[in-house]
């Protein structure tokens, strides 16, 4: 069972980015750009979501020679439900810039 607890603006922003294409695998750099999160914020949230079973991850083989495989992420079924529930509770999605700007 997922605990219902207050979600940070950054987590909400990341969930919004993941919810845009819930069935696609996304890599960390892309998510950080879409959610406008620095890596120092992004990874702790990804790890937490993964620990709670809300996020799936897999390794994607490199497309170019000499590049390392990438860690890809997408929401699990319970992650999608959780994100939608949070989104419904938080109101219509706003851009990440507005969300983050509203904190200060």
């Amino acid at each position: 069972m997922i605990r219902s607890r207050k979600c940070s603006v950054q987590t909400l922003s990341l969930l919004d980015a993941l919810l845009e294409r819930p069935r696609s695998w996304r890599h960390g750099y892309e998510l950080s750009k879409e959610a406008r999160l620095k890596s120092g914020t992004l990874y702790p949230i990804l790890i937490r979501l993964s620990d709670r079973g809300l996020l799936d991850s897999r390794w994607q083989p490199p497309e170019q020679l000499g590049r390392p495989p990438r860690h890809m992420y997408r929401l699990t079924a319970s992650g999608i439900a959780y994100a939608r529930e949070l989104r419904a509770a938080a109101g219509p999605p706003r851009s990440s810039a507005v969300l983050l700007g509203s904190r200060s």
Binding site: H27, G28, S39, Y43, I47, S57, R67, P68, P69, H71
Partner: peptide
């Protein structure tokens, strides 16, 4: 137990 995340950070850096 967080080895995957360590590899993920190192790998992703090379795509920045």
């Amino acid at each position: 137990g967080r080895g995957d995340w360590a590899d993920a950070m190192i790998a992703e850096l090379q795509y920045v």
